[in-house]
Computed example of a mutant assay.
Amino acid sequence: ASEPYEQLGTWIFDGDQALSRTPVQSLRERLRGRVDVRHARGLETTRSRDRDGFDEALHLAHASDVVVAIVGEESILSGEAHCRSDIGLPGAQAELVKELAGAGKPLILVVMAGRPLVLGDLPGHVQAIVYAWHPGSMAGPALTDILLGEVSPSGRLPVSMPRTGGQIPIYYAHKNTGRPPTPETFVHIDEIDAGAPQLSIGNTSFHLDVEPSPAWPFGFGLGYGDVRYRAVSCPTPELRIGENLEVIAEVTNHGPYPADEVVQVYVRDLVGSVTRPVRELVAFRRVHIEPGEVTHVTFHIPSDDLAFHGRDMKRRVEPGRYHLWVGGSAAATLQTEFELIADE
């Protein structure tokens, strides 16, 4: 919250912390004369397990209308050759957040970290999460804009966020396995009967103690609008290699606040000369949508954007059927299909 050096992140050998503006500094500047912004350190470092600072933090939480807990990793904990075997919040940070939640006040969790962290059950204890990574020298003004609602958050995850460290590697563009799990075939370890036969829970591939999906998928992110996807179409569902695929998506903001949505298009090549991922991002566009507005977002995707490297390591575009999804993340469900035809 008030660490000008740590918010710069790793690989900042010429970084000048004197130029940093911290969240505490910026919130006090922006709210001076209107709101009393109080700050307690809570923990000496992100790795600390000493709870001596908990009492002051809890006292301020009980005396406040809203609590912002800024957690994460110091910059030294990430970067090249700085791996961790456990990528949960280090130290006693998770315990501090849960105790702050006990104050019964709206609690916003801001995470500053150099990697995707496993947050465990913390999302169930807070009202909102801002994943800020290590945002650099202007972290304070940027976060203040978001926390005060002066801008609607529009960042999107560049990775899939794991539920546990055991899920790693986890990424949306994986190849299809021979026994992929589905919500219908997943059986949690707590639901298995005592003495169950070995094959009684099926033979698909998943971890028994965690859902096969990520905590948040690639491309995910919320804003202050209520954005919904209603329809997607390909006016010309058949196109020749060398032509452009037209995709039209209907997107509505049902919320009372403006939204900056990142509309994303994913495809799956159903049959290829080499195995293809279950989804690939082929296009995206940021659009501003006013409250109550219905907008139609049109993409023109060159067939060359569907190319991949064959066994000879040369790029190629192959004819065939494709599934296509449009939505706000790699977990989009609004689907259509098209076919790419060989150029005669």
Score class of each variant (00 low, 15 high):
7 Q>F: 11
10 T>G: 08
16 D>C: 11
17 Q>G: 03
20 S>V: 01
25 Q>K: 14
27 L>R: 13
31 L>T: 15
33 G>I: 02
34 R>Y: 06
38 R>I: 00
46 T>D: 15
46 T>P: 04
51 R>E: 06
54 F>V: 04
61 A>T: 06
62 H>M: 12
63 A>I: 14
63 A>D: 13
68 V>G: 04
77 L>K: 00
78 S>Y: 06
80 E>Q: 11
83 C>G: 09
87 I>K: 11
94 A>N: 07
95 E>M: 02
97 V>L: 03
101 A>V: 05
102 G>V: 10
103 A>R: 05
103 A>S: 14
107 L>A: 05
109 L>V: 01
112 M>H: 08
113 A>Y: 14
113 A>K: 10
115 R>H: 00
116 P>D: 09
119 L>C: 00
120 G>A: 00
122 L>A: 02
122 L>V: 00
123 P>G: 02
123 P>H: 00
126 V>W: 12
126 V>K: 01
139 A>C: 14
143 L>C: 01
150 E>R: 12
150 E>N: 10
158 P>G: 14
162 P>A: 07
166 G>S: 15
168 I>Y: 05
169 P>N: 05
181 P>G: 07
181 P>K: 10
181 P>F: 04
182 T>D: 09
183 P>I: 03
183 P>D: 03
183 P>M: 06
185 T>C: 04
185 T>R: 07
185 T>E: 01
187 V>G: 02
193 D>F: 08
193 D>R: 02
197 P>K: 14
199 L>Y: 08
202 G>P: 07
203 N>T: 13
204 T>S: 09
207 H>Y: 12
211 E>A: 11
217 P>H: 14
217 P>R: 08
220 F>D: 03
225 G>Q: 01
226 D>H: 03
227 V>G: 02
229 Y>P: 06
229 Y>V: 11
229 Y>K: 03
230 R>A: 07
232 V>K: 01
236 T>D: 04
238 E>Q: 11
239 L>T: 10
241 I>V: 12
243 E>D: 10
245 L>Q: 03
246 E>P: 06
246 E>N: 02
246 E>H: 07
250 E>A: 03
253 N>Q: 00
256 P>K: 15
262 V>K: 13
268 R>Y: 04
269 D>L: 14
271 V>I: 14
276 R>T: 08
277 P>C: 13
277 P>K: 11
278 V>T: 15
280 E>D: 13
282 V>T: 01
284 F>Y: 06
286 R>F: 08
286 R>Y: 00
287 V>N: 04
296 H>R: 13
297 V>N: 01
309 H>E: 15
311 R>I: 15
311 R>D: 13
315 R>I: 07
321 R>T: 09
322 Y>D: 02
322 Y>H: 14
324 L>R: 01
326 V>Q: 12
326 V>N: 09
326 V>W: 15
332 A>K: 02
335 Q>P: 01
335 Q>G: 09
335 Q>D: 07
337 E>G: 10
337 E>C: 03
337 E>V: 01
339 E>C: 14
